[in-house]
Design a protein around this nucleic acid. Structure first.
Ligand SMILES: NC(=O)c1ccc[n+]([C@@H]2O[C@H](COP(=O)([O-])OP(=O)(O)OC[C@H]3O[C@@H](n4cnc5c(N)ncnc54)[C@H](O)[C@@H]3O)[C@@H](O)[C@H]2O)c1
Ligand SMILES: NC(=O)c1ccc[n+]([C@@H]2O[C@H](COP(=O)([O-])OP(=O)(O)OC[C@H]3O[C@@H](n4cnc5c(N)ncnc54)[C@H](O)[C@@H]3O)[C@@H](O)[C@H]2O)c1
Lengths: 257, 257
DNA sequence: CCATCTTTGTGCACGCGTTCACAAAGACAT
DNA sequence: ATGTCTTTGTGAACGCGTGCACAAAGATGG
């Protein structure tokens, strides 16, 4: 079991702020679209609008990469596409393994967005023996036993976990032990990894809960502020579901102190 | 510019910082696990470890909700579960529509994590007429024509978009026009929405690119001055397996020059 | 070559988020 | 009651990210 520390120390990645790194793929996507339309240059204002960000922020982001713009004109689209691609490491090929080929894993395997950049699905791995050999998205699923061999043979450094939550940590440990140093985790679990290993998580449930919070707030404000004038969001019934087991477990609003 | 209608100031969610809201689901998950094991109380230190965050941060987060802890003891698990659930709006039922029942949409429909909290799949919607009536995860897929009716009848305020990128904005517009005010977007596009509508996006491609960036940095540091930079990237052409003649898919890849 | 106009690149201020450190609050023992 | 011990709740410092505003750079036209 992993016993090491978990937190990533805000990684100052060679002077490029983390927030900027997270936006580079966004710029790259907008630039790629422009490139396809053979647009030669683009101003920070236009590109920012396409990427959905502030133009000053975009210029500052680019300033971390260098001075690739021309004052009075803007940025050369093709050149910028190349520079960002290189900065992100997309000019090289990244073999990726997906572990857990269920509903989600199969969808990921079929996802074209993988291959569209430098990412290549090196292998699909599942613990279910009945699945071994079965092709998904044209790639035969391999058994978990092969995991270490595949990773070492193909030099895989990026792993995607799409197993049930209960298996995620165990899978993670095996991936790391075999040499994987970047993990994209779809299972709703906090992964424990040694230092030097990056973990990013995608958690659908959390996203929905955040939306629900704001949704509730919106409904509450409207209802409380004035008479429902506009289209009532119709949050409908306010039925406390489940959570029903406490003898007096859910004591409503009784503040201590 | 100078229109008073810039992006929402955000962060003013009833005094609770946005960063805190984003962590509440994390705490809730950890607390739920403790609750299932019938653990009565938990200290900030223990809970923070389970949620993968700093204990001081956790205490400050909880302080925004109120003083729910007992000094010298910790937090009452059941009580805290209830308080966070209520704060997030999970004590009520949230009907959700999923639009675009392809690989990803079907996986989402099958995802148990939806129903585990207050979220209920109200409808599955797809533009493909051949799909209408076909059951996915026990729910019959309905045609896009029904979209407005479903949203209004069920009082749906949260929509999930899992269509190809080219259709996302159009679907988004229809959702918003019909009354949806929160959108979870899986398509790799910047959605344009009127004020008052919340959009959160989940972008797998971006996550991978961020991982690749750090991966490259790690490799570069070890190997010293890398020699790459002019390596011709593999122009992996996206191979859409789209079974229908729908609108174009994702952003096709273009090789940087 | 000079003037003008456009747009970049960035200094600076500000606000949010994180973390430390500790006094206060309460549990528990005597 | 009193003292000790544990843990919360938070004041304060700090760092990061954001956006404004503008000088400098370069294109363009005369
Ligand atoms: N389906 C979704 O839309 C969705 C969304 C968000 C998160 N998730 C999460 O993603 C994960 C997968 O979801 P799913 O719907 O695809 O589940 P699933 O049950 O359909 O698939 C899980 C797969 O993992 C395999 N597996 C189990 N243990 C394994 C192990 N130790 N090693 C390798 N493979 C193993 C199983 O054989 C199965 O094929 C879950 O953790 C889920 O919570 C799913
Ligand atoms: N598959 C993945 O793992 C994955 C991961 C991340 C993002 N995405 C994105 O999610 C989206 C869906 O991916 P997918 O793999 O499921 O694609 P898909 O082609 O399998 O499914 C798309 C579905 O949307 C339907 N559709 C098309 N236009 C529509 C419209 N106007 N209204 C309603 N339905 C419409 C199609 O009929 C099809 O069933 C894409 O934008 C993709 O980039 C997918």
């Amino acid at each position: 079991m992993a016993t090491g520390r978990t937190h990533r120390p805000a990684t100052r990645s060679r002077g490029i702020p983390e927030a900027t790194v997270a936006r580079l793929p966004l710029y790259l996507r907008a630039l790629t679209a422009l490139s396809e339309r053979s647009v030669p240059t683009v101003s920070s204002e236009e590109l920012a609008a396409a990427a959905g960000v502030n133009s000053a922020k975009l210029r500052k982001d680019f300033s971390y990469l260098g001075s690739y713009g021309t004052r009075g004109v803007g940025y050369d689209v093709e050149y910028l596409v190349y520079q960002i691609s290189r900065e992100l490491g997309l000019t090289q090929d990244w073999p990726v393994v997906i572990v857990g080929i269920g509903n989600l894993g199969a969808a990921l395997a079929n996802y074209g967005g993988f291959a569209s950049r430098g990412f290549r699905v090196a292998a699909l791995i599942d613990a279910d023996p009945g699945m071994a050999g079965k092709p998904v998205a044209g790639i035969p699923v391999q058994h978990t036993d092969e995991l270490e061999k595949i990773i070492q043979d193909d030099g895989v450094s990026i792993g995607v976990i799409a197993t049930p939550a209960g298996a995620a940590q165990q899978v993670c440990d095996r991936l790391v032990a075999a040499g994987v140093t970047s993990i994209l985790n779809f299972a709703p679990t906090v992964l424990n990894v040694p230092e030097g290993v990056d973990v990013r998580k995608v958690d659908l449930s959390i996203e929905l809960q955040i939306l629900a919070f704001h949704e509730q707030r919106k409904a509450g404000e409207e209802a409380g502020a004035g008479a429902d004038g506009a289209v009532p969001p119709v949050a409908a019934r306010k039925q406390p579901h489940s959570t029903d087991q406490g003898p007096d477990g859910d004591v409503p609003a009784v503040m201590p102190a």
